[in-house]
Each structure stands twice: as C-alpha cells, then as structure tokens.
Design a protein around this nucleic acid. Sequence first.
DNA 1: GGCAAACAGGAAAACGTTTACCCCACTGTA
DNA 2: TACAGTGGGGTAAACGTTTTCCTGTTTGCC
Lengths: 344, 344
Amino acid sequence: MTSIKTVAQQAQVSIATVSRVLNGTKYVSPDVEKRVLEAISALNYQPNAPARNLRRQQTLSVGVLLPRLNDFFFSDLAYVLEKTLSAAGYNALFCSTENEEEKEAAIVNNLIMHRVDAVILVPSVPVQKSLATVNRLLERSIPVVLVDRGMPGFAVSQVLSNNEQGAYDATAYLLDLGHRYIGVIDSGTGTAKLAAEPGHERMKGIQRAMRERGIALDNSLVIFDQFENIEMGYHGTLRLLTEHPHISAIFALTDAIAVGVLRAASELGWRVPHDLSVSGFDDLILASHVIPRLTTVAQPVQALGEKATELLLRQIHDPETSPETVMLDTRLVIRESTAPPRSP
Amino acid sequence: MTSIKTVAQQAQVSIATVSRVLNGTKYVSPDVEKRVLEAISALNYQPNAPARNLRRQQTLSVGVLLPRLNDFFFSDLAYVLEKTLSAAGYNALFCSTENEEEKEAAIVNNLIMHRVDAVILVPSVPVQKSLATVNRLLERSIPVVLVDRGMPGFAVSQVLSNNEQGAYDATAYLLDLGHRYIGVIDSGTGTAKLAAEPGHERMKGIQRAMRERGIALDNSLVIFDQFENIEMGYHGTLRLLTEHPHISAIFALTDAIAVGVLRAASELGWRVPHDLSVSGFDDLILASHVIPRLTTVAQPVQALGEKATELLLRQIHDPETSPETVMLDTRLVIRESTAPPRSP
DNA sequence: GGCAAACAGGAAAACGTTTACCCCACTGTA
DNA sequence: TACAGTGGGGTAAACGTTTTCCTGTTTGCC
C-alpha cells in the first residue's frame, strides 16, 4: 500500500514536508503544498492510522461498553454516542458486555491493547462486578465515564438519569389517580441492588411516593425474573394478575417490560387502562406507538450522550480534572395507558 | 506505558524472546518462559496494538457499516455480527451510514486509514449510492461482503434474504385467505428501486403472487413516505384506510412499519384482524409481543450474520476466492394479525 | 573425542508516521 | 558589506512491535 514515502518521492519533497501539509503543522510554500496535494490524490494516498497512532501515542478512539447492542434503550444510547463522539473527532468502538463480568474484563483488556483514549461504560449490574474493570482503566490513567448506572462515592465521572425522581413522579401520578395496589416489574437481574443502579433508584422513588402518602409497599407485588425485557414483563404480569387480582396498576421499570405487560394483560382479558393502568420508563419511540400509547418516564438519552462526551473530552484534555457526577432530569409523559382505577 | 522492552529487562531476556512467548511463535525453554510470564504479570503489561498492527500489516478488525445503529432490525444484525466476528478473532467497528452517500464515503475513508482487514456493508439505498464506496475498497483489495441489500452482477460477496419469496409467501397467504384489496407500505425511501434491494424484491414477490392468481396490483394501494419506520406505517395507514376504505389487508414491508399500522388502525377504529389483516416482515422479537401478535416473514438474521462472517473469513484467508452470493430462506410466521376478510 | 546438526535466544531491520533538530539561503539592518 | 535573524525544508530519531538472520551452545552420531 502506498505510503508517505511514495508521496514524497512523487512530489519531490521529503516525507517531513508531506506530513506537514497533511497535518497543517508548519507553513509550507504554496507551490510545494500544491505538488504534495497533487501527489496525494494522484496516488490515492490514505495515511496509515496504526503508524500514526503509534507515533502520536493517541488513537482518537474511545471504547463504548454497553450491555447489549440490540437493546432498545442502549442502542438508542449507542446511536447518540456515535454522533457526539464523532462530532468531537473520536471514533467509537462499541462492545456488548452482556452484563457479564468476564466478558467486560476481556473487552477492556482488548481496548487497553488498542490504546483507546478513553472509555464510556455502562457498568454491569450489580455494579461491583465492574469495579475491577474500572480500576484497571484508572490505574492506567485512561479516562472513564460511567453512564446510566453509577458507582456512588467512587472517584470516576458519571452521568445518570434521576431515576429516583422519575419513578417517584410516575408512582405519585398513579397513586393520585387513586391506585392503591400497584404491581412493580423490576428491570434488574434479581440480584441485590445497590445505590445508583437504575433499578434500585426507581424502587426508592416508588417507596418514597408511597411513604409520603402513607401507603405501604406490598413486597409481594414487586417482581423480577430471569427473563429478558419484554419476556420479563409478560411473565411477570401473568403472575401478578393471577396471584393478585386486586392489582389496578403496574409500573414497568422499562418500556420494553411494559410492552410485555400490555401483551399479558390483553391475553388475560384485562383492558388497559380501563381494568389496569400501566406505566413504563424510558420513553422509547416505541412507547408512543404501542396500543394504548404508553404513559412513561422519559429519559434524556440525547443529553445523557452529550454530557458523557463532554465529561470525557474534559478529562482527556485535562487529566487533572476531578471526576464529576451529573444527574439529568427525567420527565413524566402521560399518555393513554393510565387512568383512575375502576372501583375506587 | 510499560512496553515490551521493560518486560524484557525485567525478565533478563531480549525483546524477541518476549515477543515469542507472547505469540507462541517459537519454542522457548520453560524457565525463560516462566520468567517472561512473571515479568508480564508483574508489570501488568499489555501489548501495544497499534505497534503490532503496524508491523504485522493487519489489524484483525473489520468495519461494519449499517444504516443506523438503533434500527430494530440492524441492531439485531449488529449484535449477531459482533458475536460471530469476535468468535473468529476479529473486532467489529460499527458505524451508522444514515443511508447517506457522503457519510458512507467518509466512514470508509476512515476505515481505510485504520487499515481494517475487511468490511461488512449494508449498502445505502438505492444501491448505486454505495457503488463508489465498494469500488474504493475493492481497488485497495480490501474484502467486502454486502449484507441485506445486494448489487446483482457485481463482483462482490453478498448475503441476502430471499425477500422475493418471503413477500410472495405472505401475499399468497393473504390472497388465499380471501383478501383482494391489499395495501402495501413500502420500506424504501421512495426512490427508484433496484433489483436486490429488499424493497424492490418484496414488491416483486407481491406482484408474482397476485399475478399467479390473476389479480392486478392496484398501484394506488402502494405507499411510501419520507417518514422513518414506525411513523411511516402510521401515516401510511391513515392515508390508505381513509382514501381506500375497501382495503381489507395491509402488508407492511417491515415489522417496525407494522407497529405503526396497528396503531393507525386502532385509532381509526379498525380492529385487527377482524376489520383489517396485517402482515409484517422481519420477525423481530417485538413482532410476537405487539397486540395482536404479528403475522410476519421471518428473516434469518442469525444465519445472515454467520454467513457474512464466513464469506469474509474465506476472502481474507484466500484473496483469490471469487465472490459469492448466497441467498437465505425466509419463513412465513402466521400469528394473530391476519384472518379472512369480513365480507368476502 | 570430533564434527555436523539442531536448538535456544539475541541483534537489528522494518512497518509508516511525527517531530526535534539542523541547515541553507534569504532579508533587513547597522 | 557584514552579520544576525528568519523562513522554508530536510535528516534522522523515535514510537513498540515482529521477524529475519545470526551466533553460541548443546546434542547426537560415528
């Protein structure tokens, strides 16, 4: 493949000069520059990134670790991250961690070998699983930004949605509609929850809303399962509605889960919102297109991505910057899947 | 950052030896190997991929260009490609082309600079837009595999679903149920279609099914729009059902579109499948969870990804291999969204 | 015991850049 | 006219590997 040397010969200059016009590093006279540019396009020359990265000791690329590339929410996140990162001149290297410790570790090893300039990580749940990973990066002083799932008190930049408040809002809304028996289908994996994990924070918000209104949360109405996403909502709802027929509302901690809820309700002959109110979380595009349109808590995905990139750049440019945790507001979006309970 | 040189010093050997134990390139005696391994783990050494790639003249990474990372179908494809490629020892570099010529070209330039070993491309539509791109790669003898959207007669490997047959099956099924007025909502961008583009192939399948049964396709029942996905299905259906109330079935050329169809039908008070049959295409997980469960044509996403990787590897290992086009079978999945028309 | 062959490991070149350093030929000033 | 300063461009080192070639030691065989 044609290298900078070929270009230099063709343009009758030294390779240093070629490099200079390539990078605008130093003034070169117009005629020489012209010769070089002509040679470049004549030879169809493309610089060799590995060589450049080796010499520059930077790759202009950042690793992005998500639980799954085809998850509704995370693929949206991936999309905006790709946009914001590339706008900043960085390449995004997307990887699926599958929420598995070992896979995450392996990927991070790989990213370290590739000398990424930074890493954006959605930690695995529970977040301790990702602690070692994050430390490996930090001890090599590779900037890290956590997204969506946080590690409270840990010296690393984090950008999170205000899951507690979001869940509070949705719960308060349901309660104020008159619902007293609210089923909850959890997005977690069923393991012990920690602070700053969305599942845990959302549960906290739910509890706060109920406590404030003097209502006790019936733990038997809180469900999680081994299923994934939609399936979890589906099976969870089948269980909830048959075992607790007095339930009048279900809070699905994810829109994907809510899709499963709607389906199960329909199969059991419960009409939404007439017999059962349903709220989701995330506000995927899908949420406003299911039947009925889903009441949900909107996450600021775009802002999440922008903020993450911003913190990342700051850390890259000034390694001394102290880590920062930013929390972004959610927004309750009321649509058609919620209504007052039938028999108050 | 600690390099191979440091390891060599620490282990009291030459860097060549370190390299050898790293790559298992040549026998090294057990005690020396032990010293090296100890030094490696003591120093927490990770090889420098840019340097390695520069020297080896290969990067073990392949570019994967998809229209959008957060599209339902393409994110599924991305997911399986990541799996199959990484199983083969390759890194996947995912990029969104946005179905735009210029963006695609820019991305490919970038991938060339990074010296990817190969490229998997879902061409933009219409596929001529991607011709230059593909040629740029081929003239640098970078293996290319086209997925989902083909370029018939072009000397490049391609792996496609049998869209024509799939659409034929679904249409035949609808016709045999007794439907005569079938609306079609196209997945294309509204531009002129070409052979091997899914939109075009599916239309051909529809036409064949109707022709075989002596029925003429009413072109005014075929719709495409500027909207994206779900929105297109939604707006398209609103138009179709109000302008052509005698329609008894809609074939959405994508499951995402079908979601929009269901929503529009519901808003207009058409019950599915009682008043309107709906078929999708793709068989996303979502398809079996919307209400009613969607009749659709299953695409072999998994096989698509596996086959693409297979062809890719073959080309990488033997550059002389002649390109190959493989077409994978689809499968009609009958669920609840289709039924005989009300008044035959 | 001597010699060829095999064997383990080292020295150094090469991959394609960027950049520090150097040099030559001007220009402008005293 | 001489000389310092500057501007344009070249030389070569360095980035961290892999790999070819070479060397010195050991082995095996007669």
